[in-house]
Amino acid sequence: MIEQLQAVAGAGFARTELTQSAQSAAGGAAASGVSFGEIMRDQIAASVNSVKGAESASIAGMQGEMDVRQVTDAVMEAERNLQAAVAIRDKIVTAYLDMTRMAI
C-alpha cells in the first residue's frame, strides 16, 4: 500500500511540473498559491510517514521500548490516515467515472 501511495505522489508531482512548464511555455502566468497536486502530494507523504511511524512504533512496542498506549495511538493515527486516503481515492475515481459518462 505504501508503494502505491508513493507512486501516486510521484505521478502528481510530475503532472504538476508538466503543467507549470506548459503554462510558462505558453506565456501564461502561474496561479498564485498552491496547486491541488501539491496538496495531494503533501497529504500522501504525510500518510506514508504516518504508516512508517506506526510500523516503527509497533516494532519498538514488541521490543518493550515503547508504551502500549503510544503504540496504539500511532497505529490508530495511521489507520485514520489510510482511511482518509482511501476515501479520497474513491471520490476521485467516482468523479472520473462520472466525467467519462457525460454526453459530449
Rank of each mutant, 00 (worst) to 15 (best):
A45W: 03
S47Y: 01
I44E: 07
Q83T: 03
E3T: 06
A95P: 02
R41Q: 14
N49Q: 10
S35E: 12
V75M: 13
Q20R: 14
F13A: 15
A60D: 04
M99N: 04
G28Q: 14
L82N: 03
R15E: 07
A45D: 10
S32M: 11
A26E: 00
A11K: 01
R101M: 13
T100P: 03
A60Q: 03
R89S: 09
N81Y: 05
V8M: 13
K52E: 15
V71T: 14
L82M: 06
T94I: 11
D90T: 02
M62S: 15
A26L: 02
A84W: 07
E17L: 13
A103E: 14
A22H: 04
A87T: 06
M62Q: 11
E38Y: 09
M66N: 05
A11F: 02
G12M: 13
F13D: 15
T100R: 08
G33T: 03
N81S: 11
I2R: 09
A103M: 10
S32C: 08
G33F: 00
S47G: 10
A85G: 05
Q20I: 02
S58E: 11
S50D: 12
Y96F: 08
V34W: 03
Q63H: 04
E77M: 08
T19P: 01
V8H: 10
A74Q: 01
A57Q: 01
E55Y: 06
S58G: 15
R15H: 07
T19E: 12
F13Q: 15
L5T: 02
A84L: 12
I59H: 10
A60R: 02
M66K: 07
T100V: 15
R89W: 13
L97C: 08
L82F: 02
A60L: 03
R101G: 14
F36R: 10
S50R: 08
D67S: 11
A78F: 00
M76L: 12
S32E: 14
A30L: 14
R69Q: 15
G12R: 07
A22S: 04
A14W: 09
R101H: 10
M76W: 05
D98I: 10
A30Q: 10
T72N: 13
R80P: 01
Q83W: 01
A103L: 09
V48N: 00
A60N: 02
L5G: 03
E38G: 10
M40I: 13
M66Q: 10
A30D: 08
A46E: 05
Q83P: 01
A31M: 12
A29R: 09
A95L: 05
A11H: 00
F13K: 14
M40K: 07
I44Y: 11
Y96D: 04
S47V: 09
I39F: 02
T72K: 13
V75Y: 07
R89D: 05
I92T: 02
S50A: 15
A95K: 05
I88E: 14
I88V: 15
F36L: 08
M40P: 03
Q4T: 06
V71S: 07
Q6P: 01
G64P: 00
D98V: 08
T100C: 12
D67G: 10
D42R: 11
S58M: 09
M62D: 15
M102V: 05
A78E: 00
V86I: 13
Q43C: 12
S35A: 06
G27R: 00
I92G: 00
T72H: 12
V68E: 15
D90M: 04
E38D: 11
R69H: 12
A60E: 04
A22M: 06
V75Q: 13
D73K: 05
T16N: 13
A78N: 01
